[in-house]
């Protein structure tokens, strides 16, 4: 069953819709009462990508549990793993909520930068650095890439690549932060 149109891309015009014969599935029935309701995450690609490593850090156990359940149940996964799925969603939502509560400015800066630079992490190192610091100080979550051999490209100074089109608001924020740090040490 296709839940939406079968094409992966969002159709851009009436002409495209006509050519593809795009039609949408309308199914407005609710889930049965015995399945508890959970609020969907509702975030778009930028914020989700920005928060993904923190989600991975905090919700590690839930994620693994969910994927293990899916693996064990095979085709029955969607119905059997609803409970695990709700936990995953609640956990991810809690991360996003916490980010918005304690690091709203940095979080916004980083996902705006990601949106600006085609979702490339490599263009947003400065914003990411600010966000990482803030999240570590407030939420005790750290970004960790498994199997990278200790290279940790996201740490400041580790990346050789320099963005061709930097995101200036985040650059300015980073410079400001550096100045503050210098004045504090003096």
């Amino acid at each position: 069953m296709s839940t939406s149109n079968t094409y992966d891309t969002i159709s851009t015009s009436v002409a495209t819709d006509k050519r593809r014969g795009t039609q949408y599935v309308l199914e407005n029935g609710k889930l049965p009462e015995e399945i508890p309701h959970v609020k969907e995450i509702g975030a778009t690609t930028g914020p989700l990508l920005s928060a993904s490593y923190y989600i991975g850090d905090r919700c590690h156990a839930f994620n693994d549990d969910f994927m293990l359940c899916q693996k064990e149940n095979g085709a029955n996964g969607p119905v059997k793993c609803l409970k695990e799925g709700r936990r995953v969603t609640r956990c991810a939502a809690s991360v996003i909520r916490d980010l918005n509560a304690s690091c709203k400015k940095e979080f916004e800066l980083h996902y705006k930068c990601l949106n600006y630079s085609n979702m490339e992490f490599k263009n947003c190192r400065k914003a990411e650095n600010l966000l990482n610091d803030c999240v570590f100080n407030n939420l005790k979550l750290i970004k960790r890439i498994p199997d990278d051999g200790g290279k940790e490209v996201f740490k400041p100074g580790h990346q050789i690549y320099k963005p061709v089109h930097p995101h200036y608001p985040s650059e300015r924020a980073y410079d400001l932060k550096q100045k503050e740090k210098q004045t504090q040490t003096q």
Binding site: E40, I41, N63, G77, G85
Partner: peptide, 12 residues
Amino acid sequence: NLIPLLQAEQDR
């Protein structure tokens, strides 16, 4: 890291 989240939403 995001796949379980997206998969859970889609499954529901």
